[in-house]
Structure formats: C-alpha cells, structure tokens
Design a protein around this nucleic acid. Sequence first.
DNA 1: AGCCAGGCAAGTG
DNA 2: CACTTGCATGGC
Length: 289
Amino acid sequence: MEKGTIPRSTVSGGIDLRTTLQSGQSFLWNRTDGNMYAESSDDAWYYTVSDGEVVFVRQQSDRLEWRATTDAADNLRRRLRLQDDLDEIFDSFPEDVALARARDRYPGLRVIRDPFFPCLVSFICSARTTVEQIHGFQTELAREFGNPIDVDGTTYHTYPQPAQLAAVPEAQLRDLGLGFRAPYIKQTASMVTSGELTAAMVWDEPYKTVHERLQSFTGVGPKVADCVALFALGHLEAVPVDRWTRRLIETYFPDLARETYGETADAFREHFGQYAGYAQTYLFHYERS
DNA sequence: AGCCAGGCAAGTG
DNA sequence: CACTTGCATGGC
C-alpha cells in the first residue's frame, strides 16, 4: 500500500470530507466502520473502488490522508474536485442570506465527480426513495454483481461494468428491493453496452445538449439527467430540481418558482450563474439537514 | 393505517 | 403540450 497526504493549504476554500460524502451527491463511497451516514467519527476512513483499486481517505485537521495500491492523489483531486476554488465560486453568486447561511454551516462542502455509469445508475435508483436507501442499492449492486478485490484480508467489490448489469436477469435486480427501477437499470446498462449511447458521446457537448441526450436512457428524466450532468460530467451550471429543491425555492426564492421543471431550473441557473449547481448543492444539503 | 421518499414512463385529452 | 396514474419497497 502506498500512502500520502494532501495538505489543506493546497485546497482553496477547504474540504469537509464527511459532509461532502454524506450530502447525497455520491452513493459510491463507504466508511470502514460500515456506518456511512452516522454523525460521529470525524476521522473515519472512507473508501471507494476506483479503476479497479480501493482508495481509502480520511480527514485530519490540516490535511487529507490517503492509502491505495498506487498513487491516488491525482485521482482524489479529481473525484473530490479539490481544484474548485470555493471563494471564487461564492464570489460569483449574487448576495444571498440563505446561501451564506448554508456555507457558514458547511464550509468545505464540495461538488463531487463520480464516474459516469455508476452515477447514472445511482440516480436512476433515486426515484421515490431516500439517500440512505440509494446508497444501500449501490453497495448491494457492487457486492452481488461486481468483481471482488482483496485488501489485507477484507473483500471489496468493483462497481459492476455496464455489460455485467445488462446480463443480470431483471428478477435478480428486483430481489435487491429495486422494484420498478429494475427494468430501467437493465435497459440503461444494455444501451451503454451496445454503444447506443455512451459517456463518450456526451462528454464534450455543451450542457443543454448533454441534458437532452441523457434523457434518452430509460429511467432518466430531466432531474436525473441534471444529477448526472452535475455530479459525473462536471457541468456546474446543471441544477437538479427535486422535491427538496422545489420546496426551498418556494421558501427562499419565490421569485424563481415556475410551473415546469425546465423553467424553474432555468430561472435558478440564470439567477446564480455558471456555478448554479454549487448553489443548489449547498442549499439542498442545508435544507435537508 | 396512511403517507412520504433526490421521478419517470405510459396513457389520456 | 399539460395533466394523471401506476409503480416496489421501507420507515415512521
């Protein structure tokens, strides 16, 4: 195992690892104590399986500490978007009391960057359920259908490849409690496997094109498409409007409330600008906690 | 017991 | 296009 540190001084605006990983953006991380959403254990080890290897990371007062089989520093900087300058991002927002309060309470909350396919499946799973259960689904999918990896006598699992999920009978997916989401996952995995629509086809497109194209996946509508655009493809102007976000808009930004999804998201985006997804992520977490 | 949870697809008018 | 309904399951 290699190990290393990322000094907090190199992360503009700071990093709050626990809040970032618990805030319902990514469902691909776990904690070594198995209690991902517990409040205690600020120095707990978190891990994810990335490119076939397990990467462990924990927060110390003045640094992030990591362990992996190869040098994971660059990987972590990408996954946790440590290059985002939070001061610059917040300076770009119009003055706002609710948003200032959210940052005051959760400084160092960052938008993450998930791998495309796991993020896509995660948010297909997100329909009509809870953050904790979405996370449970991803852990189960990896355990049941991913490849095992042994690290120091403990077995971890890769997230299943598209072809692996496409090959799973729908009934087996339903056995995990996925319910009506099971056929959506299977069909979407098949579409990626066959090359009908892949990450490469949307990677370099502008946000609006990405948002439209993602919705041709089964089980992906405007909200899930915005989550994938923001949390996997790095379109920081994407604004997922879910029940929580709609509620907080009606409470704190009634002038931005509109009838349809698209008009509401556009109004929010025009108000907060090119980093509107960051504003949404802070307000969402603040509203939910 | 009934309602809600990071929505979406399919069916109408 | 706008609107309604069904969808699996679990927790409170």
